[in-house]
Simulated assay, not measured.
Amino acid sequence: MDHSHKISTAGQTDSAIGGGLEEDLVMECSLSTADQDCGTSRITSHTNLYAALIRTVVVLLFLTLALVILLKDKCHKVLGIYINRTTQTAEAEEVKSEVVLSHVTSAAGLIHVSGYEGREAKVSCRYGKGYESYEKYLCRNDCGDDDVLITTTIGKRSRYSISDDKNSRVFTTIISDLSSTDAGKYWCGVTRTGKDIYTEVKLDVKPDHCCEHFTKVQGYEDSSVSISCPYESEDRNNLKYICRGNKPSTCLQEAVVTSNLKQNGQFSINEDKTSRNFTVTIRSLTQKDSGMYLCGIQRNTGLDVFSGFKLEVKGERSWL
């Protein structure tokens, strides 16, 4: 495209404008009654022209400044989005169980926690490197201000307590005196500028008793009795044990014998992994041995698995 024609035309236009202005000045001077008035008129006209030019320059400067600010803001936003995406990607690679959410709806790496009514549950959540000094918390529902149950800033509140192991980058919340209403969805949160980091937690609360069906076993004083406890193939290498009573939450701590300690007084345990069965033998029975027992299998995750039997010890067997 030929720009010389436009430039020439623009020049002619400026010349015409200038010429017209000069003719007005000359006419104004010719009509003036004195040379002094003519000079004053010319000065006034030039002053007005310069003032208009200055105003135009000022307006252009303001427009230029506004454009620079607008472009700078857009550049910062683009850069911020890039940095935020890069940060989120790094965090996702380091801590797979964490996701960044504007509103808590879902999260990767769901954590399952189980506990018994009247007992406690421990909720442990990992976080990424660099967040050691940040506030952590546990919340429910949508994690609004009223949904936050405990924070590391508070430490302990009602049935909730929280601690932060900065070396292993794990913070743990303990919920005491569990009830059925405590079951449901929770979120482990890490407070930070912008969007917090959340990890979803599902808490199951079970009654602290077992079981719906008990196997009835009879024995006689001064004799022995054996109880068979089957298990699933996935529990082949897990710890087996037996306890008295009907409280799963304390059964392992009160176990009378385990697969690691095969003999304990009158109790012994033998396991047949081929048939996926372990057998508990109780010797030298007395009336005091009557009652409820639980066969327990320790699980690596979740609650242990139990089956129950009820032992009835009768008087010495009559051989008549």
Rank of each mutant, 00 (worst) to 15 (best):
residue 26 V to L: 01
residue 89 T to Y: 15
residue 119 R to C: 11
residue 210 C to Q: 15
residue 264 N to D: 14
residue 283 R to Y: 02
residue 180 S to C: 04
residue 65 L to M: 15
residue 5 H to N: 06
residue 12 Q to V: 10
residue 191 T to P: 00
residue 297 I to A: 04
residue 185 K to F: 10
residue 239 L to E: 06
residue 92 A to C: 05
residue 252 L to A: 09
residue 93 E to F: 14
residue 179 S to Q: 12
residue 246 N to V: 04
residue 111 I to F: 11
residue 185 K to W: 07
residue 109 G to K: 07
residue 293 Y to F: 15
residue 229 C to E: 02
residue 41 S to I: 01
residue 128 G to Y: 11
residue 130 G to C: 06
residue 196 D to E: 08
residue 183 A to S: 13
residue 112 H to N: 14
residue 248 P to C: 00
residue 266 Q to Y: 02
residue 150 I to T: 03
residue 124 S to N: 07
residue 128 G to F: 11
residue 110 L to A: 13
residue 258 T to D: 09
residue 18 G to N: 03
residue 295 C to T: 08
residue 67 L to W: 08
residue 54 I to W: 02
residue 286 T to M: 11
residue 165 D to R: 01
residue 66 A to N: 09
residue 148 V to I: 14
residue 204 D to K: 10
residue 233 S to L: 00
residue 134 Y to T: 09
residue 188 C to Y: 11
residue 230 P to C: 08
residue 204 D to F: 05
residue 47 T to R: 01
residue 122 K to E: 14
residue 23 E to S: 09
residue 57 V to N: 08
residue 158 S to P: 03
residue 204 D to M: 08
residue 151 T to Y: 09
residue 14 D to P: 00
residue 92 A to D: 13
residue 127 Y to Q: 01
residue 114 S to N: 15
residue 306 F to V: 03
residue 205 V to S: 13
residue 290 S to C: 06
residue 259 S to R: 01
residue 304 D to V: 02
residue 90 A to F: 13
residue 6 K to Y: 08
residue 311 L to E: 01
residue 260 N to I: 03
residue 75 C to V: 03
residue 291 G to C: 04
residue 254 E to F: 10
residue 11 G to S: 11
residue 207 P to W: 05
residue 60 L to W: 09
residue 67 L to A: 11
residue 240 K to D: 03
residue 114 S to D: 15
residue 15 S to W: 12
residue 34 A to E: 09
residue 83 I to G: 02
residue 285 L to R: 06
residue 157 R to G: 07
residue 154 I to Y: 05
residue 263 Q to T: 14
residue 260 N to K: 07
residue 29 C to K: 12
residue 64 T to P: 09
residue 98 E to H: 01
residue 178 L to F: 04
residue 58 V to A: 00
residue 56 T to Y: 12
residue 55 R to V: 07
